[in-house]
Each structure stands twice: as structure tokens, then as C-alpha cells.
Amino acid sequence: MTFRTTEFRPMQYAGIAGAVALAALLPWLAPNLFYIHLATLGCINLMLVLGLAIIARAGQLSMGHGGFALVGGYVSALLSMRGWSPLLSLFIAGFVAAAIAAALGWIILRLRGVYFVLVAFAFSQIAVLLALDMSSLTGGANGLVGVPPISIFGHALLAKPQFYPFALACALVTLGLTWVLYRSPLGTMMAATAENQRLTESSGIDTHRVQVIAFTIGSGIAGFAGALSTHYLRFISPDSYTFWESVSYLTMLVVGGRDGVLGPVVGVLVLTPLPELLRATEGLQHIIYGAMLVLCLMFVPNGLASLVQTWRSRQRVVRPSAAVVAEEAP
């Protein structure tokens, strides 16, 4: 007999298809452009949170996630302002961020727990300082204005309803690839490393390598997403990705849940609208984010998505466990 750990059911397919259709039809359903803007930000946030989730999957917490998005944003902005196609520079931005992560990860992932968090944080601060300091290249505190839009087949994605489908496609591809990764041997090794590194190492798996790979993939996605956002807003500055952005991705991940790909989706849906709606009350959003983080850690430590999973597994478990009990009765 064989058992599948993640079983797919028609209901699930229908749910996914429905959600994707709803997201795709949003430009026609939304009452005004602001909703499309929010949905675009949601797509970009989803990519960033998925990147963070991949790193967390291998048992590490990156407090420098925003730094990689910042690097990606600047790389793509600078290249495209010198005539490169933005469609190409997006990917280069992802690769540059990934390469930095790979080099950094090789050194700092030897550091455990809190040290890793601190060094990743320091990296993001250095990225901000460099952006401020190298003003001849980066425009200093003013940032870079007039970043070229993405154009596909000579068709520039200038208006919000045009950009949104592209962002959605990028987010869905990232989501799909993350799902594939989680089910692969590499994804399984990542989960094993997070749960018991010593045992995984003693099962013949180079856990350091697995963690560096996760850090590289996750940070590469952050670089790509940072670049995507830069071409959407047509602007980037050192303030685009500060420490608070890193904290907010982490909050989305914790509130949504770290276990599968559903968690980041839920976290992004719940938390993306918040700062936009609270824009008038500057400063309050950090407090609300903090409160949500603490409340979630207290009452739903595995995230909102885990509530769905608990409910589903409760439905599934009833019969098999009854069978086991019956079998074991003398």
C-alpha cells in the first residue's frame, strides 16, 4: 500500500480555480482603481512572503528580506534606465539578489538562530546605507524617479489595470513553483532540517547546503518582487524597503501560517489592505501589525491557515482512527 501525504480532491481544485478566476476578473469587478492598486500590491507582497516562507521552511528567519527587495529594485531600475529591457532586468535583479544571498548564506548560515537573524538584519541596513551613500549612482535619499515601465511586445504596462494581470501572473507562477518545491525531495529535506537539524544531518543530508539553497531561492524571489514593484511604482528610494517592510512580511507569514503555500496567501490577503487603509494614521500601522503578530502567536501560533487544516484533518481523521481502534481491540 502507498499513501500520499498531500491528497488532492475535486473540491480543492474547484476552490483554487474559483479563487484564480476571481483574482483574474478583478479589473472588471473592482469599483475603482484603488482596489486594483491594492491587488497589485498584494501580488507583490505574496511573492515576498513566499520567498520568506521558503527560507523559514528550512528553519531560518530572515530579518533582511527587505534588503534583497531593495537590491533587486535598484538593479532593475538602473539597468532599465540604461536601456535594458525591464522584462530582462527583472530576472537579472532576481539573480543578483540570489547571488548575494548565496555568498552571504555560505558564511552566515553557519551562524545559528539569533546570529543569523542579526546578520541578515545588518545586511538590509547596509543595503539602505549604500543606497543613500552612492548618490551619484542611486540618487541618494531622493531615489530614482522615472523608472521605465515594463513593456511586453512593445506594449507598455503603464495603467494599473494593465500592470495588474502581469503582477498576478508572476505571483501565481511563484505560488505554483513554491508548491512544487515543497513537494520535492529538496522541499522535504528543508522541512526535515527545520524540524530536527541534527537528525537530518545524521540521515546523510548536508543541512547547511539545504539552508543556503533555501536562503538563495527565497532572497532571489525577493529581488524579483522588489524589481517588479519598482517598475510598477516607477520609483525606488532607500525608504522603499526599510526594516519595517521586513517586519511586515514576517507578520504576514506568521499571521497566515508557515506550513504550506496557503498561509502566505491568507496573510497577504488579511494584511495588505491594512497599511493602505490606515495611511492617514501614520505610525499606527506598526502598532496594529505588532498587535496582530502578538495575538496570532498567542492564539493561533500556526497561523490562520492552520484553522482550515485543523478543520479538514478532523473531518478526514474520524474514520481511519476509528478503524485503528477497532483493529486493536482484543
Binding site: P185, T188, E195, S203, R209
Partner: peptide
Amino acid sequence: TIYPDATVIENAARGTLAASLTGLW
């Protein structure tokens, strides 16, 4: 020394990964 939150079958299956032919990629 086990993976407490994984199922028993997953625990044993994780032990086979290094010897499996697919490798990391």
C-alpha cells in the same frame, strides 16, 4: 531522536532521502 511533528511514515521516509537517486535537484 525523531521528527515529532511529521507522521511516522514521513519520519522513516525522510531517512531514505540521502540514498534516493534523485539527489537535491
